[in-house]
Amino acid sequence: MDDRNNISPAMIRMWRVYRTVKEMCMDRGYEMLQEDTEIPLEVFNARFSKEDGEPDRTRMHFSCQPTEAMLAKYSDPPTAKIPHPVPQIGTIWVEFNSDENVGLKQLRDYMQHLVNGNFYSGIMICSKPMTGMALRLLRGSAGIEEGPKGGVEVFVEQDLLVNITKHELVPKHVLLSKEEKQQLLERYRLRETQLPRIQVTDPVAKYLGLRRGQVVKIIRKSETAGRYASYRWAI
């Protein structure tokens, strides 16, 4: 039973994807138990496999809440006028789509579900890339009437088989809070446009869910200089 040979390759694949998604949520700052990101294959198989041994994606969805630290990071610095600013982050809904083809229909249904369930944002994981028109809707979705406030992100399973941020050559990326960003710019007397840039479509930026205008600190290890940090402005 707990022999790996009895578990279908599709199930093992899905298990990797699922763990990466859980790690991603934790790394972004959502409430997540370490053990949740380390679910053993046997447990995963018992919970999410269908009778024929294939993964049942329709049962894998979950939601998570931002931690206090994350809420603070996504809030404007408090001012005299607004001592308790509203954080620009909230509950996220993560869903694994099982349809063979994902187009406008599924994406719009998903957006509607997020709005109805009062979710702040959502992540949909598809087994194949969406249609061109669905991607077009997605590109314009942040901030438009149709979707949730925090937008929708879409990943393809293939891209989540391994957690890229765990690769030794990928330096650590840390999101700066709005306050930290302000301090950085003031300290170096910079405008944000003067910073080097990172595309929001960059794989690490996607992993962290970076939004345009945010700044990440990138920490590299160097043989000569020990650790050194650089900053990038997300566009």
């Binding site: 083809n101 187009g103 406008l104 249609t131």
Partner: peptide, 10 residues
């Protein structure tokens, strides 16, 4: 073509 594709998906 996209219209046809999207209708087919639905």
């Amino acid at each position: 073509d996209s219209l046809i594709e999207e209708r087919n998906i639905a």
